[in-house]
């Protein structure tokens, strides 16, 4: 009796192992589940995996690199075929690459980009994402176009653009690049940008609202010609603060163009109401799909150029951003 039991158990074990061997197992580490952008990203990845018949398991890094490192170890010991990693701290990616390299598992980074040196240290390390500077460039272009087509936007008639910059979490790559390139784009459009104030609002609506309120008081909304926010939540916080100061409520003379990045539902609604000028869409659906397609190709050992996406420098898939405006600004 006992022998039969042991044998059956062994048989089941072998069967499951062989079944696993046939199926592609993707282990995906997300920096934090509770993030609207990563959520859309995750949904896109799940959808694509289902389409390709791969199994994807996701782990919530809870915004803590130590937690994420442990999750990567767990995935590797569980025998995943490929890793998709959204690092908590992009500068800590080397340790992740080393782990993947030691286990000879391909790794695809998403959303937060490791340095080129890190990616170069392992032939099976890739990155799928958007060029962060592009989001900055496009939001700057939105403002520049508005400024050119609306002469009244130059409130003090000096030909320069006096703007306020609301920045994301300090040290975040998106925050650095978006801040830099949005201003650069205005310059490239032939307008001289003048930063009257800037502040870190940690991607947060509430903080942005309080900060913008203080700016509206200290600088005076009549002296602000544009608000550039690193993301939509902060842009919406600025909009709420401006509304509290009777700006952006429909009166043409009391309007400050506000731009963000992300194109979330609240931002689209604010744009429909004319409270917000525009936003830039980070195409998470496309990125999620590309990451999974690349991961599956890597796990199968098939040609990565067959995914339908252009591979740049043998390491990168770049998904372009898209400008979003509504109503008359379209």
């Amino acid at each position: 009796m006992r022998k039969v039991f042991t044998l059956t158990l062994l048989l089941i074990l072998i069967l499951t192992i062989s079944a696993q061997a046939n199926e592609i197992n993707i282990g995906s580490c997300i920096y934090r589940f509770n993030d609207a952008f990563m959520l859309r990203f995750r949904n896109a990845m799940t959808e694509q995996s289902d389409k390709l018949g791969a199994k994807i398991t996701m782990a919530d890094g809870q915004d803590d690199q130590t937690t994420q490192d442990a999750q990567i170890d767990e995935f590797i010991s569980n025998g995943v075929n490929v890793l998709i990693v959204n690092p908590v701290d992009r500068m800590a990616s080397q340790a992740i690459i080393d782990k993947a390299k030691a286990a000879n598992i391909p790794v695809v980074f998403i959303n937060r980009e490791p340095t080129p040196e890190m990616l170069a240290s392992y032939e099976k390390a890739y990155y799928v994402g958007a060029k962060a500077e592009e989001s900055g460039t496009q939001s700057g272009e939105l403002i520049a176009t508005y400024f050119k087509t609306h002469p009244e936007a130059d409130k003090n008639h000096d030909g320069k653009l006096q703007f306020i910059l609301l920045k994301g979490q300090n040290g975040h790559q998106d925050m650095i690049l978006r801040s830099k390139y949005s201003v650069e784009a205005i310059k490239n459009a032939g307008i001289e940008p003048v930063e009257i104030a800037s502040a870190i609002a940690n991607w947060d609506k509430l903080q942005a609202m309080n900060i913008m309120n203080a700016f509206a008081m200290s600088i005076g909304p009549e002296n602000i010609e544009a608000v550039i926010a690193n993301n939509d939540e902060m842009a919406l916080g600025a909009v709420e603060a401006l509304k509290a100061n009777d700006y952006n409520k429909g009166d043409k003379d009391l309007y400050i163009p506000v731009v963000g990045v992300d194109a979330n539902a609240s931002a689209l609604e604010a744009m429909d109401k004319g409270e917000m000028l525009g936003t830039v869409l980070n195409d998470s659906d496309n990125q999620g799909a590309a990451a999974v397609k690349l991961a599956v190709a890597l796990a199968n050992g098939s040609d990565i150029n067959s995914t339908g996406y252009e591979i740049t420098d043998g390491k990168y898939i770049w998904i372009p951003y898209q400008k979003v405006t509504r109503g008359e600004n379209k």
């Binding site: 589940f33 509770n34 993030d35 609207a36 959520l39 949904n43 609506k205 939540e233 919406l236 979330n264 539902a265 609240s266 609604e269």
Partner: peptide
């Protein structure tokens, strides 16, 4: 609160509108 916030169809998106 996070579980509530993560319920579909909201799935952890900031509540607006």
């Amino acid at each position: 609160c996070s579980l509530y916030f993560d319920m579909p169809p909201n799935n952890s998106q900031p509540i607006g509108g």
